[in-house]
């Protein structure tokens, strides 16, 4: 099936969503996502940040779709034409969605452990406005304790439902869910239950904001002062492929490895995440490739090979002589 996104045509298999097709083309045309998670079934559709305009439904039925659609939940049709970054209305609507996501967000980034790796920060930076038009007190929830590993800050939650779906799809029995309705809706356990299972820590990885954070890492360090290192171990419960966040020789935090879309490549178990905090527990594979736009890459090495390739490309473009072919 052929689909055209922002003027770029790509051939995709049947059943692909617009978002997946856009990601295949590349990050330039891929809409931002807050609730969609490719590893979780039925995720997406809630946050509305990935909305795009379908200007041609399909080759057979070229009428445009009347409303903007959530690209993460809309399957492509043959001959579909989609506008994302080239459509002013889409960008305006997305700006509106970002504003809605932020009106009740506490904006406590200076004390939030997620700062630096927060999807909402990135989204606000790329698509939001510099100031807020919201002048009312922000929503606040009562704090509840959901166990010794995971810290819940409901005030920061943007209701992406990812943590609910993780619990549904990874674990036997989900004990947390959504209570109440509308803007009073909250992620909670009934009644003040504790989330306890071998994979509960994954809610931290899927949370796009600082609503669910690692208690063992709380206030230890800003993420951009830590060095991400890929490591592995023989684990009976999970793949054992993790990312260590180190300061000196100390392992401050263990997370799943995340791909370029910020999604965990493989979910890991609590034992790997919370209990193995010594370098000797792990087989270090090497430094993590950090995306250069990320704040985490500040004061860090860049991936040297990639840098070399980029420099060579630039030099070639500028008419430099190839250093390897010097006479």
């Amino acid at each position: 099936m052929k689909v055209t996104i922002d003027g770029i045509t790509i051939d995709v298999p049947k059943g692909t969503t617009i978002l997946q097709a856009a990601r295949m083309i590349g990050p330039e045309v891929a809409p931002p996502t807050m609730c969609y998670y490719s590893k979780l079934k039925t995720s997406g559709g809630y946050c509305r940040t990935c909305i795009v305009k379908v200007t041609q439904g399909s080759a057979a039925n070229p009428t445009p779709m009347p409303k903007p659609v959530a690209s993460c939940r809309t399957e492509v049709m043959d001959g579909m034409v989609v506008e994302n970054t080239i459509n002013k209305d889409v960008l305006e609507a997305r700006k509106g969605v970002v504003e809605f996501l932020l009106v009740n967000h506490p904006l406590d980034c200076p004390v939030c452990d997620q700062a630096g790796e927060c999807s909402l920060q990135d989204l606000g930076y790329e698509h939001g406005a510099a100031t807020s038009r919201y002048e009312f007190p922000r929503r606040e929830f009562e704090r509840i304790d959901i166990g010794k590993y995971v810290q819940l800050h409901m005030n920061r939650c943007i209701m992406c439902f990812r943590c609910v779906k993780v619990a549904d799809q990874l674990t036997e029995k989900r004990v947390h869910g959504v209570m109440h309705r509308g803007d009073a809706a909250e992620i909670s356990t009934y009644i003040e239950n504790v989330i306890e299972n071998d994979f509960s820590g994954n809610v931290i990885d899927v949370c796009p904001v600082g609503a669910l954070t690692d208690k063992t890492f709380r206030f230890k360090s800003r993420v951009w002062f830590t060095k991400p290192v890929d490591a592995s171990c023989d684990c009976k419960k999970c793949s054992g492929k993790v990312r260590l966040w180190m300061k000196g020789e100390d392992v401050l935090r263990v997370t799943a490895r995340k791909d370029q879309w910020g999604e965990a490549e493989e979910f890991i178990c609590n034992e790997c995440r919370f209990d193995k905090k010594k370098t000797s527990d792990w087989k270090i594979e090497g430094p993590t490739k950090v995306d250069r736009h990320s704040v985490i890459s500040q004061n860090h090495y860049n991936h040297l090979n990639e840098l070399k390739v980029q420099v060579l490309k630039q030099q070639k473009a500028l008419g430099f002589m190839d250093i390897n072919k010097r006479p």
């Binding site: 946050c47 509305r48 940040t49 809605f100 009312f136 009073a184």
Partner: peptide, 18 residues
């Protein structure tokens, strides 16, 4: 409408209250 919004999607959840 603020009272009856289900809270699933952001524009309605936050917008109606605003």
């Amino acid at each position: 409408y603020h009272h009856e919004s289900c809270g699933q999607c952001s524009p309605c959840r936050e917008g109606t209250g605003w």
